[in-house]
């Protein structure tokens, strides 16, 4: 397997891990926060809120305006 497919497999694994961790966070009495709760925690402060919302906007811009 060349480095291209290894890298693609790496990103796919990370994406799968993201889905699994979020699903684990949705179980009753889970100590793992969901991604939504994690982001809400970061966005409690004004700089955190601006940072997360700016990243969201940049993420859309980055993929659409390519």
């Amino acid at each position: 397997m060349n480095t291209h497919y290894l890298t693609v497999a790496g990103f796919a694994t990370i994406l799968a891990a993201l889905v699994v961790v979020d699903a684990l966070g949705r179980r009753p009495d889970s100590r793992i926060p969901t991604l939504s709760d994690l982001l809400a925690y970061v966005m409690r402060t004004w700089p955190g809120r601006v940072g997360v919302l700016f990243f969201w906007w940049w993420f859309g811009w980055h993929f659409i305006a390519r």
Binding site: F11, I14, A17, S30, R31, I32, D37, L38, Y41, M43
Partner: peptide, 23 residues
Amino acid sequence: APQRLSLVGTLPWVVVILAFAGL
């Protein structure tokens, strides 16, 4: 928003985010 997060519970997210950023 949650006022506190479990340090242990947050660890999986730290691993996922660091793995993505690293790759």
